[in-house]
Write a protein that binds this DNA or RNA. Structure first.
Length: 496
RNA sequence: GUCCCCAUCGUCUAGUCUGGUCCAGGACACCGGCCUUUCACGCCGGCAACACCGGUUCAAAUCCGGUUGGGGACGCCA
């Protein structure tokens, strides 16, 4: 059987956004599923808009997501000779012709057509039937020209069979003679893309529905170049709540892959979310390991309906699609602790909170602590913010619990040190049961609710309103830190 | 405007090809309850959709036609 070869061909004119990442993901899964190859090709023929920063960002983003490729990155501009040769072949075989119409002329024609509101398919064919003499004359005058593809003057429709959408048809008469080479000699996307796909022996072109009109024209190109037409699969698009195509321009960083990296998302969680946009396995399964996704994936289960990225600007709680957050949370609290440990390590390192002992003598403590605190967290960032008190003695006290659980009870300034004193004599018995017993006992003696002591303790020890069971916190932190922090309670009153 | 694609809960979607098991299933979000020293997690329960009209049929979310709605494309961008 023929080797499956797919490609991801981003144009480096901006960062990698989630739509592009989704396209890359589906191609990646497809390649893996069929033991095929994924080719990364940077389509940088638009010299004015292509940037190195963008190239780096795209590659960086793909790597972060864990989407690896088998060949490339190739750069389209390195194959200009191929593209020009193909254009010349088309010219020689009569599949293309030189067009001397100027940009300005065409623009004027377009505008008048638009004004009359009866705009027909593109180019009017002025240069299509130029005689050899006329062409020679123009050449001698040095009039610049572009190369246009000569769309066959056929009755009926052109069609191709899309793996997702079924048969797609379009009347030949609806397809204009499109430009394949600019007047400066630079070949255009439509041609380059086909020439490269032929050279790279691409078998399946999996891309967005926004390419559908390109595909009909490219099918013509494959025929004219006498190459086998690949299988096309047009995926539904991802839109915003206003049903607009998502883009950097109108949506900003929330659609950038980089944003999720900076926000502390787990790369695979983003992939998992993305694969559910326009695809489902036909079962109720929503969480997939890589292997499971590759196993379950099938192009035939791709939806034909555009999906909406449920993002509401200005929402403090749901700063991106709530389902994406939910999926990230799911992974955060169910993934292997060792794996989570590696991800959190990076967070701790950037905050200078990493202790090498977490890899050795304190590894058990490190992983157990992550397991204790992760249930309440949303992203990896929470480990160094809300969870900071577990890894550092310098942590902020949230004003809300400070007021509610501490300042409201001024006597805590003596109660908590009292508690600390009783804790301090505990040695091997400094465990959850004993610390709880002692705390309740003291509350009883002071004739206050245990909650007063417990909640005050939580605020002082972690700076947080909420957290794990208080006595798990106490044992995790250890006697020394607990005693020190409780004794230090007066600083909170002093500061207030 | 022209061509192409699409149409199930607020969002992601199952079900449509092969009509009956669907007074439409799951997930997220939301609401309520349980658990609890806090907040979560977890568990239980609830709210919520077949765009509209007509046709075919004993029977339509499912097939057909139309309407409406949405999207995409219409560059010497990719």
């Amino acid at each position: 059987m023929e080797e499956v070869r797919v490609r991801f061909p981003p144009s480096p004119t901006g960062y990698l956004h989630i739509g592009g990442a989704r396209t890359a993901l589906f191609n990646w899964i497809f390649a893996k599923k069929h033991n095929g190859k994924l080719i990364l090709r940077i389509e940088d023929t638009d010299e004015e808009r292509s940037t190195q920063t963008s190239i780096d960002g795209i590659i960086d983003g793909l790597q972060w997501l864990g989407l690896d490729w088998d060949e490339g990155p190739y750069f389209q501009t390195e194959f200009t000779a191929d593209h020009v040769a193909a254009a010349n072949r088309l010219l020689a075989s009569g599949h293309a012709y030189k067009c001397y119409c100027t940009k300005e002329e065409l623009e004027r024609k377009r505008e008048t057509a638009l004004a009359e509101k009866k705009r027909e398919a593109g180019y009017d064919g002025t240069c299509r039937h130029l005689s050899a003499e006329q062409v020679q004359e123009k050449e001698e005058q040095g009039i610049p020209s572009v190369i246009r593809f000569r769309v066959p003057e056929r009755q009926g429709t052109l069609f191709y069979d899309d793996e997702v959408l079924g048969r797609i048809e379009r009347a030949y008469s609806e397809i204009e003679d499109f430009v394949i080479v600019r007047s400066n000699g630079k070949p255009l996307y439509l041609l380059c893309n086909v020439v490269d796909d032929i050279r790279d022996r691409i078998t399946h072109v999996i891309r967005g529905q926004d390419h559908m009109t390109n595909t009909t024209r490219q099918v013509l190109l494959y025929d004219a170049l006498q190459a086998k037409i690949p299988v096309f699969a047009h995926m539904p698009l991802t839109l915003d709540l206003q049903k607009r195509k998502i883009s950097k321009r109108s949506h900003g960083e929330v659609v950038a892959v980089q944003f999720y990296r900076e926000k502390g998302f787990i790369p695979w969680a983003l992939c998992n979310f993305l694969c559910l946009l326009g695809w489902n396995p036909g079962t109720d399964q929503e969480f997939f390991s890589r292997e499971e996704l590759i196993e379950s994936f099938d192009l035939s289960r791709m939806s034909r309906v555009n999906s909406v990225f449920n993002y509401k600007p200005g929402d403090a709680k749901f700063f991106t699609d709530p389902k994406l957050i939910a999926i990230n949370e799911h992974y955060l609290r169910t993934m292997e602790l060792a794996e989570l440990g590696d991800l959190v390590r990076k967070e701790l390192e950037t905050e200078n909170l990493w202790d090498p002992a977490y890899e050795t003598t304190r590894r058990d403590w490190y992983l157990a602590t992550l397991g204790l605190i992760r249930d309440r967290f949303h992203t990896l960032k929470d480990f160094t913010t809300a969870g900071r008190a577990y890894f550092s003695d310098k942590y902020a006290i949230d004003p809300k619990p400070l007021a509610k659980n501490v300042l409201k009870f001024p006597e805590l300034v003596t109660w908590l040190p009292q508690l600390a004193e009783r804790f301090s004599v505990l040695d091997t018995t400094f465990n959850a049961e004993e610390t709880e017993r002692i705390s309740r006992e003291l509350a009883d003696e002071l004739q206050i609710k245990p909650g007063t002591l417990i909640n005050g303790m939580r605020t002082v020890l972690t700076g947080q309103l909420a957290g794990p069971s208080m006595f798990d916190i106490v044992t995790t932190l250890g006697r020394e830190k607990v005693v020190a922090r409780l004794n230090d309670v007066d600083r909170l009153f002093a500061a207030a």
